[in-house]
Design a protein around this nucleic acid. Structure first.
Length: 202
DNA sequence: TGAATGATGCACT
DNA sequence: GTGCATCATTCAC
């Protein structure tokens, strides 16, 4: 369960989709160029957040895993909202407006807001960029200890863990640039048929 | 129902 | 200068 609990309120959700990224040897990983200013936390202790900006507008949350020399991480790709749905929806909408501030006149804004309001609660955090938006995260959260039971952003074990047989493995999304060997590794994991998964058919 | 596309900031070569 | 661990919208069928 991913949980944000701070002055902004409390929001939580079940993690239903992730991707594993290896260290420098993994051609799809941000660690592939070795340590840099952006990925430095990947080369540190496990359990801390690594948030990066992708395509100039989406903040994506990773959990650093393994030892410092392994420099591996897990991308949180989708969450099923449990608490704080209204907060998630508000933050998501706020970002959508910021993203399109130059494009929309009043009528288009109203139409976009109506469409956004129709997005099902189940799908507010269905995708790595959507997780970042729903939980109000940005790169400033990089370095946060996600295992601190009193921290503002953390990961906890669910009371009802999923049956391992319902977990599906498949290739990672959007990493074709890494070449077939690495792009083909089945390192994306999601709950079979879950409504909050980013690509139910993937 | 699915493919194509534009938006947008920055890490990296 | 190139291209990205994405998403929402538009347009084709």
């Amino acid at each position: 369960v991913l949980l944000r609990d701070d002055a902004t309120g409390r929001r939580s959700g079940r993690i239903v989709e992730v991707e594993a990224y290896g260290g420098p040897e993994d051609a799809a990983s941000h660690a592939r160029f070795g340590p840099t200013a952006r990925n430095a936390v990947m080369f540190g202790p496990a359990g801390v957040a690594y948030v990066y900006l992708v395509y100039g507008m989406y903040d994506c949350l990773n959990v650093v895993t393994g030892s410092a020399d392994q420099a591996s991480a897990v991308l949180i790709r989708a969450v099923e909202p449990i608490e704080g749905v209204a907060l998630m929806r508000a933050d998501r909408w706020e970002r959508a407006v910021a993203r399109r501030r130059r494009l929309l006149d009043t009528d288009a804004l109203v139409a976009a807001r109506d469409r956004a309001a129709r997005v099902a609660d189940d799908r507010l955090a269905s995708g790595p960029g959507a997780v970042g938006a729903a939980f109000g995260l940005d790169r400033g959260w990089t370095g946060t200890d996600l295992l601190d039971p009193a921290g503002p952003l953390r990961i906890e074990a669910p009371e009802d863990p999923p049956d391992p047989r319902t977990i599906v493995a498949g290739p990672r999304v959007g990493v074709d640039y890494a070449g077939s060997t690495w792009a083909g590794r089945p390192w994306r994991f999601h709950l079979a048929g879950h409504r909050s998964v980013s690509r139910p058919r993937g």
